[in-house]
Design a protein around this nucleic acid. Structure first.
Lengths: 202, 202
DNA sequence: GTCTATATGGTGATAGAC
DNA sequence: GTCTATCACCATATAGAC
């Protein structure tokens, strides 16, 4: 079946090394965090040596950055494509939250890596990450503001309303259990109801 | 003024060593996380040697645990005392969120240490920490359920409503900037309005 | 592309003098 | 109670053979 196994001296070989490394690293980062995950751990999970990992990524941080940037980029485009189907801003917001939850569930380790992979708030994220996070936040805010313009929503502070929505979705990564009975989508649907009603009346 | 200074060979001495260590460690843990904060860093901030720190705490993890457990315990009792003044469940919930926000602001580093001090979700928190966190979550849930019983709130799922409320308060630790213009209390007040209305109608 | 072996430095924790 | 000095270990990253 497998073409090779990491043994005593025989060079191993795997397919799609970059993606395999990223997937395994995300699982480890999500469980133990970036700092407590050694490259040795990653290498062992992948089935390569430490030095082989360095062939694909110059530093451990680059692995982390690749996971995060891949995730944020795909999330944005998937959500954007999905909400195009809806007409009213409130329906768009609902679809955004549902699609976000689905995507979260499919890429649980990557989300946890993004949101809880590095401890402490002092780390300055790369400007690319900041840009793509801001873009996503702006998307939500535009929906809220559009809802206020059409009268779907009442005039709450759109910045704080946006933060509330994203807080719910982000902290879902702490409540959610991959093996639990609750689907992320179901939680997000309930959250939407709460927020939606809260936004409707002043 | 100061009784001693950590110099070449002279033993230093500080007052309230335990509290000083905890306060300095919380600042460092909040900024850089538990793993990236060395005991050397803590010792330098406090003004003692590494070995002196070990005189007060057997391991680095014990310092972290002490910060978290002190925080959660005091938070619970302060909030509990505060909401006793109110009569209706919705007013109690409002006071809980405001008091929580005030306490968060006063102990910002400790909250960040609790919520973002350790990376990864694999760490099993101590049973003492779990107990006191569950107790706080139960307090919020009781308010939601009481509000449903009196008709203050409509019949949303109380568990998910509770998680929504705590998600907002917990993720506030990511938006909030100690030097920023927004008071935590003001954000919490707006969050209460959103959630309150969302809970009122089905 | 992958390996073994190693350089280099920091870490948590301890020993023992004062 | 605080210090200096040190231990034993593990980390990231690199060199160079194959």
């Amino acid at each position: 079946m497998s073409t090779a196994r990491s043994g005593v001296g025989r060079p191993a070989s795997i397919e799609a090394p970059r993606e395999t490394i990223l997937a395994n690293a995300a699982t480890l980062f999500a469980a133990n965090g970036l700092e407590r995950t050694s490259l040795q751990d990653v290498a062992r999970a992948v089935g390569l040596s430490k030095a082989a990992i360095y062939h694909y990524f110059p530093t451990k941080t680059d692995i982390y950055d690749a996971i995060v940037s891949d995730l944020l980029d795909t999330l944005y485009h998937r959500v954007l494509a999905r909400i195009g189907e809806a007409e009213s801003p409130s329906e768009q917001l609902r679809l955004l939250m549902l699609e976000h939850a689905d995507y979260f569930e499919e890429h649980y380790s990557q989300f946890v890596t993004l949101l809880h992979g590095v401890a402490g708030l002092g780390r300055r994220p790369g400007e690319a990450e900041v840009r793509v996070r801001d873009r996503y936040e702006a998307l939500v805010r535009q929906l809220v503001e559009a809802g206020q313009a059409t009268g779907d929503f009442a005039g709450r502070d759109p910045v704080l309303a946006t933060r509330a929505i994203l807080s719910l979705l982000n902290w879902l990564s702490r409540w959610y259990k991959p093996d639990g009975p609750l689907r992320a989508r179901a939680v997000a649907a309930e959250y939407f109801e709460i927020v939606h009603l809260g936004l409707c009346r002043r």
